[in-house]
């Protein structure tokens, strides 16, 4: 009896918010994003973990600190918050995002098809574009669907390189991996994310583990570290399901020949998970900097293992994105 009463009480406790002139009754235990989606309101979203910044909405009302934590000051100033990280607040007035606030035009200058259905895509933004290699950009695809891609280039390339794996049902990836994409003008966001190289300890050994197109941010970080004269050794582990998935093996071998501090290891699933191989070879990570990019499960598991192997949490950089496109 008591349980039913408390449920009724919860049902009475509905919170009302206003979204673009529509009154929305909200479940206080769910995020603003999930509440709007439950009402079949179209809101762009992807990771729902507060990382990809796809679900930005605007409000002049006060919101929780964590729903703005990863945002740049310019976006906060305009009232943006992450709708997946915010619970509804009674009377809250919410507006949809203005795409011109954070998208800019870029020209697709080239596409190079690699093995394993992966393409290197090269973009030239119009106007200023600053980034740190390893950060990600959001790209607006067909039907305004937004997806995140990590940056594999370094600023002196004067072109932004991303790696896109074509997924059978991925609207954005199929569009980017088609021949017609070259020469098109597309919309990209500013670069975001915390997974990049800092030149604060140039003798620190670095362990990099990437699966699939999780190689893209690692390539950017690796080249960035060398352009900033990183002197510590770098052990890069690149894993994929099969040989075809090791789509940039040749370029990595060239870099290995060029950078005296770099050792590259390749692995396919046949030989076991690449993260297991890396941790087996480096059982003690005390003092190491660790970069983990690719499949979210791999990243989560390996982050725990790296911590248990005595890497400091503040030295572990992770970028878990690979599944966003598949989940669409």
């Amino acid at each position: 009896m008591e349980v039913i009463l408390s449920q009724q009480k919860n049902a009475d406790c509905q919170i009302t918010v206003h979204y673009e002139g529509t009154v929305v009754k909200c479940n206080p235990d769910k995020s603003v994003l999930d509440n709007l989606l439950d009402q079949s309101l179209a809101v762009n979203h992807s990771c729902k973990k507060g990382v990809c910044l796809t679900c930005l909405l605007k409000t002049d009302d006060k919101v929780d600190v964590k729903s703005r934590a990863p945002l740049k000051a310019t976006l906060i100033e305009q009232g943006y918050f992450l709708s997946c990280q915010q619970v509804p607040i009674e009377g809250m007035m919410i507006k949809s995002a203005q795409s011109t606030d954070f998208f800019q035009q870029a020209l697709v200058s080239n596409r190079i098809e690699k093995s394993g259905y992966v393409s290197q895509i090269f973009l030239k933004p119009y106007g200023d574009f600053s980034y740190k290699p390893g950060q990600f950009i959001n790209i607006k695809g067909p039907n305004d669907i937004v997806r995140s891609y990590s940056i594999a280039s370094i600023p002196s390339d004067n072109v932004i390189e991303i790696h896109v794996k074509e997924h059978q049902y991925g609207v954005v990836s199929r569009w980017l991996c088609s021949d017609k994409i070259i020469g098109q003008e597309i919309e990209i966001s500013a670069a975001n994310g915390e997974c990049f190289y800092l030149p604060d300890n140039q003798d620190q050994p670095m362990l990099m583990i990437g699966t699939g197109t999780g190689l893209a941010p690692l390539l950017g970080i690796l080249r960035d570290s060398q352009s900033q004269n990183h002197r510590g050794k770098i052990e890069l582990y690149f894993g994929a399901v099969d040989e075809a998935g090791l789509y940039l093996a040749d370029q990595l071998r060239d870099l290995e020949a060029e950078y005296i501090h770099l050792t590259v290891h390749f692995g396919t699933l046949k030989e076991g998970p690449i993260n297991d191989m890396a941790l087996k070879n480096h059982p003690n990570l005390k003092g190491w900097r660790v970069f983990l990019c690719g499949d979210p499960e791999m990243v989560k598991k390996t982050k725990t293992k790296a911590y248990l192997a005595d890497a400091a949490l503040s030295d572990i950089y992770a970028d878990a994105f690979d599944l966003a496109e598949i989940s669409s």
Binding site: K49, K300, K301, K303, T304, L313, I316
Partner: peptide, 14 residues
């Protein structure tokens, strides 16, 4: 018990 503590956001968990 590790499953209760495993998360991507290890800084927050710590």
């Amino acid at each position: 018990i590790s499953r209760f503590f495993e998360t991507t956001d290890m800084d927050a968990q710590r």
